[in-house]
């Protein structure tokens, strides 16, 4: 093989490597999500409804569940848990809710983003029904009761006795309408 041919071959290989690594950068995005869900990094919870399989309810054990909420700047909503703190048995199916009020003068679509702390506990916090799975549209000056049905897995590690579930509410009306493009310019 002549030197030029050898060079060309190696250049091709290396370019391929560079392109593959560019792809890998983007592949890190889904990879990260998988890792987060598996390892409980960042307290990400299941993004889709879990199926409740009636298991033994561990009545000897009580786990404290706390609910907190945040509303994004510029979003004229009130958004709060109806109960801020409860004690549950692992395996027990629990229903609770958050109340949302749109104080604004327009129709707004909200999206709640959940986060559980401690992060390792997230994998054991299973939601069978959650308003965070869907967008939440609310008309001006109207309110809604947003349901959340969940159970705590029996396998929750012993050292975790409190789980805090936080919801951050974001206004995704613009994003939903596809006008997010102009957001940068509008600023």
């Amino acid at each position: 093989m002549s030197q030029t041919a050898a060079n060309k071959k190696l250049v091709k290989l290396l370019l391929l490597g560079a392109v593959a690594m560019f792809g890998f950068g983007f592949a890190l995005v889904p990879l990260y999500d998988v890792l987060c869900e598996q390892l409980g990094i960042n307290g990400k919870t299941n993004a889709n409804a879990a199926v409740y399989e009636p298991t033994v309810i561990d009545t000897d054990r009580l786990v404290t569940i706390e609910f907190i909420s945040h509303v994004q700047n510029g979003m004229p909503w009130e958004f709060e848990p109806t109960v801020t703190k409860m004690q549950v048995h692992p395996g027990e199916l629990i229903r609770t809710s958050f109340s949302a009020i749109n104080n604004g003068s327009t129709h707004i679509i909200g999206q709640a983003v959940p986060s559980v702390s401690p992060g390792q506990g997230a994998a054991y916090f299973n939601k069978t029904e959650c308003f965070c799975f869907n967008k939440q549209p609310l008309d001006a000056n109207s309110s809604a009761d947003l349901p959340l049905i969940f159970y705590v897995d029996n396998a929750l590690p012993e050292h975790i006795n409190t789980l805090t579930l936080s919801y951050s509410l974001y206004d995704i009306t613009e994003r939903h309408l596809g006008t997010a493009l102009t957001q940068g310019a509008a600023r």
């Binding site: 560019f22 983007f26 493009l181």
Partner: peptide
């Protein structure tokens, strides 16, 4: 370096392309 290129591209699309 391609990973850096990837992450700045994500910053660009997050900022300008929704």
């Amino acid at each position: 370096m391609p990973v850096l290129a990837g992450v700045v591209t994500m910053v660009l699309t997050d900022k300008f392309f929704g």
